[in-house]
Structures are given as C-alpha cells and as structure tokens.
Amino acid sequence: MSVVVSSISKVFESQKAVNDISFSLKKGEIVGFLGPNGAGKSTTMKMLTGFYKPTEGSILVNGIDMLTSQIEAQKSIGYLPEHNPLYTEMYVREYLQYQASIFKVEKSEITTVIEKVGLTSESHKKIYQLSKGYQQRVGLAAAILHNPSVLILDEPTTGLDPNQLVEIRALIKELGKDKTVLLSTHIMQEVEAVCDRVIILNKGEIVIDKPIAELKTSTEQFIKVTFDYKLEEQFIKRLPNITSYKNTSENNWTLVFNSKEDMRPKIFDFAQENGLKILGLNAENKNLENLFRELTS
C-alpha cells in the first residue's frame, strides 16, 4: 500500500475534528474523499502531508512513518491545497524553476511537466495573466514536479468552467494511472467520472469506504412518496425490504429499499390495503449524490 492511515484523530483545543479513522490507498488508485463542510476532510489531508500532526494514530507513506521521518515521507507526496498558493507575479517557468530548486529537481524536468499538464502555450506568461484553469495546471505542475508517487488534491476543480473541468478531470485520470491519488471535492459527478473508490467522512468519522463500481451495482432504491394522510412510523416499517425511511414533511416520505424488484407496485398495494391515496411518487436511481445525502444529513 502507498498510504496506510491507522486510527488517526485530531483535536483542536476542545474540538475533535477527526475521530479515529483508518484507511489505506494503493498505487494506481484514484480515491474520492467526500464530506460536508466541517467533516474533517482538509484536516485529514493536512495530516497526510505532515502539515498537521495527528493527536493519535499513525500514517505511513510508502512504508515511511510520517511522524518520525516527516521530510523523507513528504518526498513521496505531491500536494495541491484548496487555495492554490501561487506567486502570481512570477512567470510560469520562473515559478517552476523556483519549485525545482526546492526539491532539487533537474531543470530539464520542468519542460516535461509543462507538457504533461498542457501548459506549453502559456508557459511564457506571468501566472496572474492565466485563467483559473491554467493556474490550477500550474499548481498541478508544481505538485508533480518531483515525481511523487502519492498525489493529494484538495478541491482541484473549484471555480473552473465546464471546459476547464473536463480538461482537469482528464489530467487527473492520466496522472492516476501510475500514482496514488486522493481527491477531495464537492462535485459528485466528478467523483463518479474520475474515481475508482469513494470515502465519505461525516463529523470526523468514515461513514462509507467502497469502490464506485460496487455503488453503481447496488440494489438500493430511493422512492419519494406523498400520501393523503399523515402516517405513523410503525406503519411505514411494515413495507417489505425497507431499510430506512425519513418523514421529510407531514405527508411526505423518503423510503430506501434493498431489493432487485421494483418496489413501487408494493407501495401502491400498501396504500390500498391501508385505505390511503398516493398523491405523488418518484423513484430515484441509487447514485453517489443520494448516498451522500443519506449518510450526511
């Protein structure tokens, strides 16, 4: 495994931002790291990069302990933080030369990286002259300049237009072929398009860690139904194959079933048996956005 996180927690004064989480990441895997604001995503990423030290637990990067050998572990990591810190008055090549000097990277690598991230046509410009999309490319170029085996990307597509979004997604997928990528984002479609696996964090704890393919083949069904009468919870529990439910307003319910069978006819039968009328019914396919709402609401 490229990264092994074991029972890490982070406490800021009296607030526990991350609570005893464990996971591992392997080479050639792009993992989506999701959660609502304040869930602990950025704090976890900062611990993985060595910016924060965990209050408890351990982090291994390519077998190197981040706590005892921080500099050595950081050599294997490329990090693009949420707010991309660039010296915008510098030229693109000038900035990357500066980064190369920090990592003791041969200057010949700069041209290679510029080509890889698609910056060749813009490399003669000052960074402030670039669009948001190209500035993100500069940040990615700096993150991969020393050829790290692990990439940690915190909201890399924030503020991009649809064309820039597609380009950066393609670049991340290409980079993920021979690196380990941990990608934080609020855009569910991005995770479904790019990632192999998803980890969802809520209130500092992991609530799910599954391959995307497994989620797509799930037998769970989300059905929103409106009855003409307010039902008690005990009646809803009688529905077959129901796994969870939520009374969203007086007569409205969101129901979750686990079955290969379409459960809508069962809901109609249930209504008829109990003398109810259905005023509205809408079935939703199980997707990441549904799952995210279910686990973090």
Rank of each mutant, 00 (worst) to 15 (best):
G40F: 00
K260R: 14
S297H: 14
E72N: 12
T68D: 12
A271L: 04
E284H: 13
G78D: 00
A142T: 15
Y79H: 04
E29L: 09
I64M: 11
P240V: 13
L201H: 02
A142R: 15
I77E: 09
M66W: 06
F222E: 13
Y95R: 10
L239G: 11
Y229E: 14
F257G: 07
P162R: 12
I144L: 03
F227E: 06
Y79K: 02
L239E: 10
I152L: 03
K266M: 08
L165S: 06
L231V: 09
A142M: 14
S184R: 05
L160N: 03
L80H: 14
T49M: 08
Y95H: 13
T111C: 12
L140I: 14
E56D: 14
S76M: 08
K210L: 07
L86M: 13
V194I: 14
G118H: 09
L48G: 03
Q135C: 10
V4A: 12
V150C: 03
L201T: 05
E294D: 14
I71T: 08
I187R: 03
S2N: 13
E273N: 12
K177T: 05
T112Q: 03
L279E: 15
T44I: 01
E214M: 02
A170P: 07
T43A: 04
I8L: 05
P148Q: 06
T219Q: 15
Y134H: 13
Y128C: 02
D161N: 04
G35Y: 00
D20E: 11
L201F: 08
N247E: 07
L255G: 04
G35D: 00
F103R: 07
K75N: 11
G159S: 12
R169M: 08
F292M: 05
D65H: 11
K224S: 15
S131A: 09
E122G: 04
V61N: 06
L231A: 03
P156E: 10
S22G: 09
K53E: 15
I267K: 07
E13I: 10
E72H: 11
K237S: 12
V117Q: 02
I187H: 13
V150W: 01
I8V: 13
L288R: 01
I77M: 14
L171T: 01
L231M: 11
F227S: 01
Q272R: 15
I223Q: 06
M1L: 08
S69Y: 15
K41F: 05
L145Y: 06
S7F: 00
A141C: 10
K75G: 12
S249C: 04
V198H: 01
I212R: 00
F235Y: 14
N282H: 14
T68A: 12
E284N: 10
Q189D: 15
L279W: 08
K210Y: 07
S2A: 11
V225W: 00
I152K: 00
A213W: 03
I267W: 12
V194C: 07
N241T: 08
P211K: 02
R197H: 04
L165H: 13
V105Y: 05
K224M: 12
G32I: 01
E190T: 09
